[in-house]
Design a binder for these strands. Structure first.
Length: 471
RNA sequence: GUUCCCAUCGUCUAGCGGUUAGGACGCGGCCCUCUCAAGGCUGAAACCGGGGUUCAAUUCCCCGUGGGAGCACCA
């Protein structure tokens, strides 16, 4: 009876920049599968590149993960701290004859590759030290340790996303395990760490598919267990080209700053490459229940910001009013410079939320449409509002004021008054409402007018309206 | 150049030999309506090309074409 072991997954970013959208999706898929199976989701920071790794990037990645709601199990593991262990494995392989010392210099190898390229061949190490015994000339000279990889037959990556991918071993070369300064390469570190951490499923970007074959050779040499591989198709920019700085808004933090909700990001990202029939709106809890590898597509996807907006609008509308109001307050506090709302503003925000959230696709939009509630006093007019408050518009506004004043200033009463005023003067309700809206909010569009009049109260509303009433 | 991967509406995708090729975003129209949204109805919109296999190919195979990724003492 085979023992039943829970899956162990990991997300292994290198801290050389922010957590970008591609990395976030890779993390999400790993996380979803771990939560789906009741397995473990580990976070490993691949900081073996001492030149490019920064503590700031580590923080940014951790924060990005937290914001996305992707919690990892246990403490994050830092790969560099395990360099000794990596070296130990390389030495063991060397002792076993499964690896060998290579004394070729960087210049020498560069020259070799240039010659290969000129001959229209794939650049690859030619194995010049594979069967050569170092002589006295090599004493004290720097060397790297390379894997003695098989040169015949094939290596097959059995991938849950891509299927079986076959590589002829003759196209692979003897990769470097340990650099001449004694530090491990990525290839060594990944394989050793995955083995030591008991990783059962390696789910990562398709840019690693080629690496998988070489890593399989190493795993074989080490006698380690082969994990389940899954290489996710990449995410491209809206134009189909690689996602880059040019497309802007790369880091997960940038999406937060644009006013997207974490739930939106999870839903949007999971649908990039994975599907569940015709379902589009998939809350995270549902995704955890449904997630599987079989439904992951093979082709690269593009970012579609319109669809992201639409989804975000959905989740905004679905968020409870006071929760959303609180989230907006937090969000504004995170902006640079931070924006704070007075007690009055927060109170009005909460009161208007049912109407506000219906018309916002991002927290930024929500904030903009609520701004007229934040402060008292006469509004400055935007372009649309100015167009509404022509002399004619102001005259209509002035004429309607007495009727409004005569009401008890409740929404329905105000609407009734405006309606009868319009009717009496042969106007459509819109012709009366629009100038009022412009004066009250400073904008051409707003949440329902009479509701907002009631919310702002008689004194404040009249103050704003009178400022633009024709005399 | 070479190795590997991919290919259904503009975009995300369903489809797993026989379908009027479905859904979603976006776009157009209509309804609702105090504006803007939201919502409802509705329209336009796709199987990259060529060969096979098969009674039958969007679906399976091959070639081409087009994208993408890798080919470092980076990760």
């Amino acid at each position: 009876m085979a023992e039943i072991t829970k899956p162990v997954l990991r997300f292994a970013p290198s801290p050389t920049g922010m957590l970008h959208i591609g990395g976030a999706r890779t993390a999400l898929f790993n996380w979803l599968y771990a939560r789906h199976t009741g397995g473990t989701f580990l976070l490993r920071i691949e900081d073996t590149d001492r030149e490019r790794s920064t503590p700031e990037a580590v923080e940014a990645i951790l924060n990005g993960m937290r914001w996305m709601g992707l919690d990892w199990d246990g403490d994050a593991i830092f790969q560099f701290a395990r360099a000794g262990r990596h070296r130990e494995v390389a030495e063991k392989l060397l002792a076993e004859g499964k690896a060998y010392r290579c004394y070729a210099t960087a210049e020498e190898l560069t020259k070799m590759r240039e010659a290969q390229k000129a001959a229209k061949q794939q650049p690859r190490y030619d194995g010049r030290w594979r069967d050569r015994t170092p002589g006295p000339a090599e004493d004290g000279k720097p060397y790297v340790i390379r894997l003695r990889a098989p040169q015949t037959s094939q290596t097959i990556v059995q991938d849950v996303v891509m299927g079986d991918v076959t590589f002829d071993n003759s196209t692979l070369d003897d990769m470097i395990l340990l650099r001449s300064d004694g530090t491990p390469t990525y290839m060594l570190a990944v394989v050793v760490d995955d083995a030591d951490m008991g990783i059962t499923h390696v789910i990562r970007g398709a840019d690693h598919l080629n690496n998988a074959a070489r890593q399989l050779q190493l795993i074989d040499a080490m006698g380690a267990a082969i994990p389940v591989y899954g290489h996710l198709p990449l995410i491209n920019g809206p134009d189909g080209a690689k996602l880059s700085k040019r497309h802007g808004a790369l880091a997960v933090e940038a999406y937060r700053d644009m006013g997207y909700l974490p739930e939106t990001m999870r839903n949007y990202l999971m649908r990039l490459g994975w599907s569940h029939g015709d379902d589009e709106i998939i809350p995270t809890a549902q995704a955890i229940a449904w997630f599987n590898f079989e439904a992951i597509g093979k082709s690269a996807a593009r970012m579609d910001y319109k669809k992201l907006d639409n989804l975000n609008g959905h989740y905004i509308r679905q968020t409870a009013d006071d929760v959303l109001a609180a989230e907006l307050v937090t969000f504004l506090g995170l902006l640079t410079p931070p924006q704070t709302l007075s007690g009055m503003a927060q109170e009005r925000l909460r009161a208007a939320m049912p109407s506000l959230k219906e018309r916002a696709r991002t927290l930024l939009e929500l904030n903009q449409s609520a701004e007229f509630l934040y402060t008292d006093g006469t509004r400055t007019l935007d372009e649309a509002a100015a167009k509404l408050l022509t002399p004619e518009g102001r005259a209509i506004l002035a004429a309607a004021l007495p009727l409004l004043e005569a009401t008890d200033w409740s929404g329905p009463a105000l609407e009734d008054a405006a309606r009868s005023h319009a009717e009496a003067n042969g106007l459509k309700l819109g012709q009366v409402a629009q100038p009022l809206r412009a004066a009250l909010t400073g904008k051409g569009t707003s949440p329902p007018l009479f509701e907002m009049l009631a919310l702002l109260g008689r004194a404040e509303s009249l103050n704003r309206l009178m400022a633009y009433a024709a005399t």
